[in-house]
Design a protein around this nucleic acid. Structure first.
Lengths: 311, 311
DNA sequence: ATTTTGTTTTTTATCTACAATAAACATTTT
DNA sequence: AAAATGTTTATTGTAGATAAAAAACAAAAT
C-alpha cells in the first residue's frame, strides 16, 4: 500500500501528489534492466524528495512489476515504457500551472493595464482553489506587474514602458555592481571556470547561429545569473530571479527580429567576458554599460506599442 | 440591523470586522455635538472605506444614540465617550497583529539564525488560522530575513551581519540614484517644499535634542522616503518600504546610544539637504555618501554581536 | 556502531465554506 | 438630471479540514 499516495481528480482533493508523480517519472526513465537500486535514503537524495516519497515510488514500481523489491534487494525486472509514466498534465506543480496560465493572460494583447484581476474567476479558469491563486498573486506582486488595494481587487499594472524603464534602471545598477565584484574574485574561484565554459558556448552558438539563435535566451540567463551570483547579495539575486521569469515569458511571446538581436548580444557578451577576464575595472564597466544599453533598447522595442501606464 | 456587521470571538468567525471598528472609532472621535453629517458617499470617502461600511457606522452611531439619523438628516446628539469606542485590540487588522507578533519573535534574542519556523505553531500562538500566517510569511519573505524550501519549512535567516551588509549595499546604490534624480527635479516641484519643511523640522528637533531625540526615527524615515520617491521607480520604492519596516522594529528593540547617534545623523541630514538644495551633483553625491557611510556603521553596531549567518 | 528498513507523527499545500467588505443596481429625493 | 438613499450581488479575507509530503522514531540488518 502506498500509504496516502493514491491518485484523485483535481478539485476534489486536498492536495495533488505531483511531487510523487514527477519524481516517479524521473526515476523510472533512468532505470536499466537487471541493475540493483541503492538504499532508500540515497534514492531520496538523488531525486531531491523525502524518503517517504522515495518509498512510494518503489512501492509503485514494485506493484507495476518494474522492479522486484524485498528489503534491501531492489532489482530492475524490465525497462519502463511510456505507458508506465504519468501523463505530463499530472506532474506539473500547481504553482507552475498557475504561473503559466497567469502569465499567458497578462501578456496577451487584450490584457489592458489598469484591468482588475478577480481571484475567484482566475481560480475557476485554472481549475484550482482561491487560496492557491491568492498566494501566487502575493508572490508575484514582487515583480511590480500587479498591485493590490487592501480589501479590494488586484490591478494589472502591465508590461508597460514605465515598467521596462524602471526595471532597466535597477538592472543596470545591480549589474554594474555585480560585474565589478566579479572582477575582484580571486583567480582560483570556480566562477572563472564557469565563465570560460560559457564563453566557449557563445563561440559554439555563433558558429551555428542560424540554427541555434533560439537557444540564446537560456544562455543569456545563465550568463547574467553567474555574474549576479558574484555579488553574494540576496536582494540582487532575488531581483534577477524576478527578471528572469518575466523575460522568460515575455520573450516567448515576442520573437520578432530574434536572430539579429541575439547575434548582436552574443558579440557584446564576448566583449564583456573578455573585459571580466582582463580584470581591468574600467574595461569591465565600459563593456558592461555597452551591453546594458543595448539590452535596454531591445527591451523597449519588444513592448507592445500602445501600452503606457495609467495612473 | 447592521447587515452582517455583528461582532464575534476571534477564531470562531470567518473574518473580523476590524475595518468597520477601526473606521467607527476614527469617525466617532471626530464628531461634534449638533453638527450635521454629510452624505454617505462623502463619509465613505473621508474614511477610505466603502459606503456599505460607512452605513454600518451610521447604523451603530444611531443605535447608540450618538446621532439621530433619518435619510439625509444626520445630526450629532452627543459627543461619544471612550466607553463608546471599540477597544484597540479589536481594531487592529489581522495582518498587523501577525506582523507585530512575528517581528517580536524573530528579533528576540533567543531566535537563532537557522531556526525553523512552523506555520501551525505560529498560528496557534497568535490565535489565528494558518492561511493568514502563510500569506504573511510569503509577503514577508521579500525582506530577505526568512527563506523557504518548497514542501518543507521556512528557515529564519536572521538579522545577521551578512543581512545588514547586503541591505546597506543595495540601499547605497538606490539612494545615490534617487538623490541624483532629486537634484534634477524642476524647482517648482512639490518635493522642494516638502524638503524645506523637513529641513525646518530637523532644526526644531536639534533645538530640543535632549527631549526629542526619540522622535528622530520617524523623521529619518520621512526624509529618506521623500528622496526615494523622486526616483519614481517602483522597485526602489518597494525596497525602501521593506527597509522602513525592518528598521522600525529593529530600532524599537535596540535603543543603545540613541541620543548621540541621532544627533550626529541630524547634522548629516542637514548637510545632505543643503547639498540637494544647491543642485550641485558632485556635492549631492559627497553628502549622500557621507551619510550612508555612517548609517551603515550605525546599523552594524546595532547588531547582536554573536549573530553570523550559518550556511 | 552505523546504515538500512519499517512505522508513526508532524507539517505543508490545498480545498471549501462563510462573514466582512466592496461594488453594483434600483429607487427616491432634491 | 444629478445626487442621495435603499437593496442586492460580487469579491475578498480567514478559518477549518484533509491528503500529500516531510520528518521523526523504532527495529532490524550489515
Amino acid at each position: 500500500m502506498g500509504g496516502g499516495y493514491e491518485g484523485g481528480k483535481r478539485g476534489l482533493v486536498a492536495r495533488q501528489n505531483t511531487v510523487f508523480k514527477e519524481a516517479y517519472n524521473r526515476y523510472a526513465v533512468a532505470l536499466r534492466t537487471d541493475t540493483a537500486l541503492p538504499s532508500e535514503p540515497e534514492i531520496a537524495a538523488q531525486l531531491g524528495v523525502s524518503r517517504s516519497t522515495a518509498r512510494a515510488i518503489l512501492t509503485r514500481l514494485s506493484e507495476e512489476g518494474i522492479i522486484r523489491w524485498n528489503k534491501r534487494q531492489k532489482i530492475v525486472l524490465r525497462q519502463p515504457t511510456d505507458h508506465d509514466l504519468f501523463p505530463s498534465e499530472e506532474t506539473d506543480s500547481l504553482h507552475d500551472i498557475i504561473e503559466r496560465s497567469f502569465m499567458q493572460r497578462i501578456l496577451a494583447d487584450d490584457a489592458a493595464p489598469g484591468m482588475q484581476i478577480n481571484e475567484l474567476e482566475l481560480a475557476r479558469e485554472i481549475g484550482t482553489g482561491t487560496t492557491s491563486v491568492r498566494e501566487f498573486l502575493i508572490r508575484f506582486s514582487r515583480f511590480g506587474l500587479i498591485e493590490k488595494r487592501p480589501n479590494s481587487h488586484w490591478t494589472l499594472k502591465g508590461f508597460t514602458r514605465e515598467f521596462a524603464l524602471e526595471l532597466a534602471d535597477v538592472r543596470e545598477m545591480f549589474e554594474l555592481h555585480s560585474a565589478a565584484e566579479f572582477g575582484r574574485l580571486s583567480r582560483d574561484n570556480q566562477s572563472w571556470a564557469d565563465l570560460a565554459a560559457i564563453r566557449d558556448e557563445h563561440h559554439a552558438m555563433l558558429d551555428d547561429i542560424n540554427q541555434r539563435f533560439k537557444d540564446f535566451s537560456v544562455l543569456d540567463e545563465r550568463f547574467h545569473l553567474l555574474i549576479h551570483r558574484a555579488s553574494k547579495n540576496r536582494f540582487i539575486a532575488d531581483f534577477y530571479d524576478a527578471i528572469a521569469i518575466v523575460f522568460h515569458y515575455h520573450y516567448q511571446w515576442n520573437k520578432a527580429a530574434a536572430r539579429q538581436r541575439n547575434e548582436r548580444a552574443i558579440y557584446e557578451h564576448l566583449d564583456y567576458i573578455a573585459a571580466l577576464e582582463s580584470g581591468d575595472q574600467a574595461a569591465i564597466e565600459t563593456a558592461c554599460r555597452a551591453h546594458l544599453h543595448s539590452a535596454r533598447q531591445t527591451l523597449l522595442q519588444s513592448l507592445p506599442q500602445i501600452a503606457t501606464e495609467t495612473a
